[in-house]
């Protein structure tokens, strides 16, 4: 488990990370969310021991990342921001180097390298220098080196940045398969990623922890959570009847009044009553679905200090 205790990092007068405390348990996939410059990468750099905190401390399975740094580094895999790697090496040589540093030799080393090469589909570029690879391949090489020793703790700074949708899907699947008994910490700008892979989401802005919750609970904070999106072919009196329904807080319409978003009162479920209404009036329906909530809205509201219901 990882314990982050009153972690603070100052760069001159600027406070990048401000009194951050939390713990992460095995099996958790923690997603760091936050605007650029929120302190996500700085926090990750301190967790991996690259940066020394100004105050506070991080312990990884009991190893302090400052005093017991080597032990902590042994059980961690880290993909730094931008996935840096040695450009004049080939992925094969690079991965063999990392595996060797991680203490593997001989057959075991070859097996480890082969495993990650397969997992990240690097076979086609194994003997090309990393400099000549596409952004997506570079990122996958970076991921491969991070998981080569099957680490207990995986810290990934924007792991899917620069990948195409298919590759993103593959990487997410990889992370999900990894994470049964591991600690995974990822940072991302892509909010759908949080819902896709994380069991826990933390929103950080200005170096402070603003929200620590499950992605589902975060979605539920959205004013769109539970709202019904409805598109009709004829508008005839629908707006008024919908507004009069029990549990409806408000109705917004657009597109000549044919596209409607019906917001529920807190806790109310509108699916059945609206469905009944549709059948009773025999309205022709183009679109009818329940919104889960927009993480984007929640994110924007929280990080800009505004109200979610605005």
């Amino acid at each position: 488990m990882i314990t982050v205790d009153k972690l603070t990092k100052q760069f001159g007068p600027f406070t990048a990370v401000d009194d951050l405390s939390f713990t992460v348990n095995p099996g958790e996939v923690l997603g760091f969310l936050g605007p650029n410059g929120a302190g996500k990468s700085t926090t990750m750099k301190m967790i991996t021991g690259f940066l020394a905190p100004s105050s506070g401390q991080v312990t990884v399975y009991g190893h302090n990342t400052l005093d017991d740094s080597l032990k902590a580094r042994e059980i961690m895999g880290y993909l730094p921001e931008g996935a840096p790697s040695y450009g004049d090496m080939t992925p094969l040589k690079f991965l063999r180097f990392i595996a060797e540093v991680r203490g593997f030799r001989g057959k075991e080393l070859t097996r480890r390298v082969q495993t990650v090469v397969d997992a990240l589909q690097l076979t086609s570029v194994l003997n090309q220098t990393i400099d000549t690879l596409s952004k997506g391949f570079k990122r996958r090489v970076g991921l491969a080196q991070a998981i080569i020793h099957d680490p207990k703790v995986l810290v990934l700074d924007e792991p899917t940045d620069g990948l195409d949708p298919n590759q993103k899907h593959e990487v997410r699947k990889l992370i999900q398969n990894l994470s049964k008994d591991k600690i995974v910490i990822i940072s991302t700008h892509i909010l759908e990623e949080v819902t896709a892979v994380c069991t826990r989401a933390m929103i950080i802005a200005g170096g402070k922890l603003l929200v620590d919750d499950t992605p589902q609970a975060l979605e539920a904070r959205s004013r769109f959570h539970g709202a019904i999106r409805l598109t009709l072919t004829h508008a005839g009196g629908a707006l008024e009847q919908l507004q009069a329904l029990d549990g409806v807080k408000s109705v917004e319409s657009s597109g000549n009044g044919l596209s409607l978003i019906i917001f529920p009162e807190t806790g109310a479920s509108l699916f059945l009553p609206i469905n009944d209404l549709l059948q009773k009036n025999n309205w022709e329906v183009h679109e009818f679905h329940v919104e889960k909530g927009k993480l984007d809205d929640v994110f924007r509201a929280i990080t800009s200090g505004g109200d979610i219901n605005e």
Binding site: G49, P80, E81, P84, Y86
Partner: peptide, 11 residues
């Protein structure tokens, strides 16, 4: 190239 971050977080 930023590899210093990689190198220094290796054991």
């Amino acid at each position: 190239s930023g590899t210093i971050e990689l190198l220094m977080t290796l054991p």
